[in-house]
Design a binder for these strands. Structure first.
Lengths: 90, 90
DNA sequence: CGTATAATTAGACACTTGACTAATTATCTA
DNA sequence: TAGATAATTAGTCAAGTGTCTAATTATACG
């Protein structure tokens, strides 16, 4: 459970989660949105996977990431949105 | 806002918040509950204060800590309880 | 005032984290 | 099979985190 909070402690990862809240995206599409190298992004994906916050599926050359939408994960999204609304996020 | 998640990323600090959920406690009372030196505990108190998750007041020699009970903070407590219920916490 | 108690601040140190470049794996297509 | 593309793994490094002991600050009380 510690992993979930560790995962959420990084602003880049919270941004990734917010992006995924709009639907699944490939690793490449996500990487485009950040000024961070692909390997570094991959590292963040891994942290999110370990925390069970996202799931990955391969389709051809792409890996699609999406939110792991259990009740708890939805709650996390709500929290992220609230925080976003409350002020400056990230 | 980053501070809130950073604060929640440490299991000791989450435990402190759960203890404070039962009412205010002094730094000493809190320290007794952990196998951690007083200075280290003080460091954790400071992180929680910075994140605005707790408030401190002095009464004589003691410093009393309590949850900062805004709507958001209450929500955090709910999350912590949920996580606690869901499985192994800390 | 002098000593004891509660808590914090200062400084050091090991471990973790997030970033990078280089190399590797997996898949597609000509 | 060879070459191109998507993504990850490996290895490195600076910065951050959590811990400790020692020293300091603040309050209480005899």
């Amino acid at each position: 459970m510690d992993g979930v909070f560790k995962a959420l402690a990084d602003p880049t990862r919270r941004s990734i989660l917010r992006l995924l809240n709009g639907g699944e995206m490939t690793a490449g599409q996500l990487s485009e949105r950040f000024q961070i190298s692909a390997p570094s992004m991959s590292h963040h994906f891994n942290v999110l996977k370990q925390a069970d916050l996202v799931v990955a599926r391969r389709d051809g050359q792409q890996i699609y990431y999406s939110l792991n939408t259990t009740v708890f994960q939805e709650m996390v999204t709500v929290i992220l949105d609230l925080l976003k609304a409350e002020g400056n996020n990230e």
